[in-house]
């Protein structure tokens, strides 16, 4: 499959800075693309647009030539957010958080190192690293075709980082999911991605 962003422009509100201007990106589902840029460059905003959380002022996002909205209730482009604690419902147990998306196969939960008793806890009772594993699992539903990873490992320690990334790389390769990784760490992107885009020096 091909995910295409065509001439995207975006700004929050009328009097603020133009964040994205005529930005285009095309990626195929066997690719792992890395994005680097200074903060405030619109990386998160771009991910939000790609996964349908935000509508661009100009331009369009196409998945295999069709707009995202034509894909039914589950969006095949899933985003993993930088701050997992902001994207889980604090009133749900982690077990229910996992069920919010598409059907998730059991080996994913195991492969990410999620332990059985974490599932009974509420978001406030688990650490950021543990919660991020749930969020990654939730984004890897059966119908996911593209995965946008927006700084998903900055809050994790090195060992957890390499654990999660090696699982993710294996998974996206096996299922031919396209991966877009946003990070400030060049060594990380160099070992994860097949292609790196530097937004500042385009």
């Amino acid at each position: 499959m091909v995910l295409e962003a065509k001439n995207i422009s975006f700004q929050y509100g009328r009097d603020t800075k133009q964040i994205l201007e005529n930005f285009s990106l095309r990626m195929e589902s066997h690719e792992r693309v890395g994005i680097v840029a200074p903060s405030g460059f619109g990386k998160t905003t771009f991910c939000k647009i790609l996964s349908g959380y935000e509508k661009p002022d100009g331009g369009e996002v196409l998945l295999d030539g069709k707009p995202l909205s034509s894909y039914g209730r589950y969006c095949p482009v899933q985003m993993i957010w930088q701050h997992p604690e902001q994207v889980v419902n604090p009133r749900l147990r982690m077990r229910e958080v996992l069920k919010q998306g598409d059907e998730i196969e059991e080996y994913i939960v195991e492969g990410l190192g999620i332990e059985e008793d974490w599932k009974n806890r509420f978001p406030a009772e688990i650490s950021g690293g543990e919660m991020q594993r749930f969020c990654i699992a939730r984004a890897l539903g059966r119908r996911t075709r593209f995965l946008l990873a927006d700084e998903i490992s900055t809050m994790l320690d090195l060992i957890t980082q390499s654990q999660i990334w090696s699982f993710l790389i294996g998974e996206v390769e096996r299922r031919e999911i396209g991966l877009l990784a946003v990070s400030h760490s060049m060594p990380l992107l160099e070992s994860v991605c097949t292609r790196i885009i530097d937004l500042e020096h385009l």
Binding site: D157, L158, I159, Q161, S162, Q163, W165, L188, E190
Partner: peptide, 18 residues
């Protein structure tokens, strides 16, 4: 040592468990 080996430039290896 495990932390060192987990750096992307030093092999990106991880150890089991939490």
């Amino acid at each position: 040592k495990a932390l060192w080996r987990a750096l992307p430039q030093n092999g990106f290896q991880f150890i089991r468990g939490t």
